[in-house]
Write a protein that binds this DNA or RNA. Structure first.
Lengths: 343, 343
DNA sequence: TACTTTTATGAGAGCGCTCACAAAAAAGGA
DNA sequence: TCCTTTTTTGTGAGCGCTCTCATAAAAGTA
């Protein structure tokens, strides 16, 4: 570890005060051209770089943005973070990353932590905190952008996927393909998006006068551990189609079907959510409610940047609508009536 | 934004000196039980949290580890970061994330940046910097753990995938399946792992006395943009198998085959590298040289932690060997001789 | 020449904490 | 009682910077 030079060392070498060095460092105009060049040369020569830590101690800005998400290995968040990071970087902001693994306690302490690091802003992706908690935290950590949470408070902006619409559109699509016995794996029990998705599912059924069967409604923790099992349960209940809360879950459903010697889509249609890049490489390629993930990341970051700058108007709430992307994991029910198991 | 309390505010409220507060905060023993409880109550009451920024200013440790990687949306790095983050967190260390997008300039400035933030250590995943640059930087940013770069210097530890072995094993496997005309998409031109992989490929051919055909050797930038095109070129050269540098590239190769109305594995066998989670969901499921990604992340983090603590021995170099995981994207050449195009 | 205005530089304080030390209070020993 | 030891608390300095303000030097005005 080489010893690190400070602004005082440079000042001494240059024979000027540390304040002059500071001025050069910050491109202040009130410094003589000769002095500036002299200082610049010495800085250059020794490769001096000021401590950003010390600087932010006094300027009260860290150029750090805390990004909290449940799981970085999940391609959904991966794509979003890519969009976030690229946009932040273009604005000289850096990413302080935290993964909560769906744990509310961890989430809470992470938010606390980044507050203690004096981050300039926060991006909370799909926080699990309850509304009261969230409202309590926001004033302390503001500005903050929330993904998939709609909390109308000062200091917070929201970017939400219309999971209600998504659930509706996916279900409607399946109904139009002739399915009536449609299972839904809605997602984590307490998650806002799960509930919304379920609402959309119900709405579609209602619209087509299909009676709601509550035992076709499944919720599952986001770790995908239970998806396989739950898919088996649904299959036993003779569904002809299953709509899921994300593409990875859909992949597990397809695998459950394969394990039970059922064909997707011939026996069962499966529809995903998110439209992650690899959904097209799956076996079979996935029909999914697709989201512009990278762009969403950009949007999130841009809103936060506006909030940090503080002099520009920003959208308090931005709604993103998924669009149906047809793959080969769904098919018309009518077209293959004879394939139905037990019928 | 609520105003933030400082240690002085608490000191005043408690009627003691700021040093006593500091002692309570740091669980120092030399403070009277009564005083401690009194202070604790006031801290609790006002939800005071000390500024980690100010603290690290004096303690000279930030509890931050900079993690630099080429692409966060790539599941390969996603899995690794998951392992890194979980391990670091268990040791009260946090992640300062940076994505270089394969850009050497960005990489350089990121390393500089994290140095200026006084991070406690760095993890560089597959840096693109040339050896000289790397050697020059390491003393300034030490301790550092390098993934997939073998630079023997003080202050750096390395975790490398034996791509040579991987390339060898994949090629050998294909040869044993009866393939002799095997194409390789080795990876980014200047990447260390690409060259290693290629060496292994050559070694396997040599071992089986198969003449090397240089026009079956392809290199491609890691962005997968060109993979499709390059795969087409290889296919035109009548290869019966293609070995690739990662699973995503393999997916693109499979897609190129599909586009040309060729079947994988009946017409062409494809083998991937890394063994990311979704490779099993691909169409067809991928045969791949599988890596324990999550565990690699843990290993990397653990080595860095030892280096930071400074009182424990650590492995200067850790080699990880990929293992073959058979999927349905490869098949025996002999078994389907009649399927060969143009033969 | 003396005066104001402009330009360039420096000195001191302070961001919120922890360090090394000094000082005060309490306890123990004779 | 006085003196030593132990326990507890407080003081000053300083981490590496950037503020604000004062001062010095240069330039313009009369």
């Amino acid at each position: 570890m080489e010893k690190k030079l400070t602004i005082n060392d440079i000042a001494e070498m240059a024979g000027v005060s540390r304040q002059t060095i500071s001025r050069v460092l910050n491109n202040k105009p009130e410094v003589n051209a000769v002095t500036r060049n002299h200082v610049l040369r010495i800085i250059e020569k020794h490769g001096f770089q000021p401590s950003l830590q010390a600087r932010s101690m006094v300027t009260r800005q860290t150029n750090m943005v805390a990004v909290l998400l449940p799981d970085i290995a999940n391609p959904f968040f991966g794509e979003i973070v890519r969009g976030i990071e690229r946009t932040l970087r273009a604005n000289k902001l850096n990413v302080f990353l935290m993964t909560s693994e769906e744990d509310v306690g961890l989430e809470n302490s992470f938010i606390q932590l980044s507050q203690n690091y004096n981050v300039d802003g926060m991006i909370l992706c799909s926080p699990r905190l309850d509304e009261a908690n969230l409202r309590r935290m926001i004033p302390k950590i503001s500005p903050v952008v929330l993904l998939n949470r709609d909390v109308d408070t000062d200091g917070a902006a929201c970017v939400v996927v219309d999971a209600n619409y998504g659930g509706y559109a996916a279900t409607k699509y399946l109904i139009e393909q002739g399915h009536t016995k449609i299972g839904i794996i809605a997602g984590p029990p307490r998650a806002y998006s799960s509930m919304q998705r379920l609402e959309g599912y119900k709405k579609a059924l209602q619209e087509f006068n299909i009676p709601l069967e509550t035992d076709l409604i499944m919720q599952v923790e986001a770790d995908n551990k239970g998806v396989h099992q739950i898919a088996e349960q649904l299959i036993k209940k003779q569904v002809t189609a299953i709509t899921t809360y994300n593409d990875l879950a859909a992949a597990h459903v397809i695998q459950a079907c394969t394990d039970l010697k059922l064909s997707v889509p011939d026996d069962i249609s499966v529809i995903g959510f998110d439209g992650i890049e690899i959904s097209q490489f799956m076996n079979p390629s996935l029909t999914t409610m697709s989201l512009p993930l990278f762009e969403m990341g950009q949007t999130i970051a841009n809103i936060l940047i506006k909030m940090i700058k503080g002099n520009e108007a920003f959208d308090k709430i931005t709604t993103v609508y998924p669009i149906l992307k047809e793959g080969r994991s769904t098919t018309s029910f009518k077209a293959l009536g004879k394939n139905l198991r037990g019928k």
